[in-house]
Amino acid sequence: MKIVIPILILSAAISLTSCLDDPDCNSKTTNFVNIKFYNSDNNEPDTLNINKVTTQGTDSVLFSEVEASYIKLPLRPDTVQTTFVFDSELGIDTLILKYNTNTRLVSEDCGIEMVFSDLDYVRSDFGSIKIVNKILVEQVTEDVKIFN
């Protein structure tokens, strides 16, 4: 029976640990996509003179009268596709991004968390575009590269 005691202690420890794994509420996900502009000739960071950026589904203007090297655009949570219209020094350009939304209940205390994943583009009027990050999280500062 000598072996019983250590195994009992082990089992007690096992059942203890199972009580200590409540999740923390720090959700790191976001619905904002970070877009950076590059010069297509030398692949160096570039700025873009933007008159305004609008999106379908709302009348609000996301950006107006800015010279930006990068912008942060919100994705719609109720669909899997968001259309942006850029009015800039290059003319009117449309950018349509598609993605998946994955929602989970983190816990009763923390509520839900929505993950935007599989980011890709459906249409882009810019010179060229490259998706560099497919899952949107707050720590990542660059998701899409646009070359002009």
Partner: peptide, 16 residues
């Protein structure tokens, strides 16, 4: 099954 409501500053609040 999950029923939830969310808040969104740009596109407005909603339920799903």
């Amino acid at each position: 099954e999950l029923n939830f409501s969310y808040t969104n500053d740009v596109f407005g609040d909603g339920t799903s």
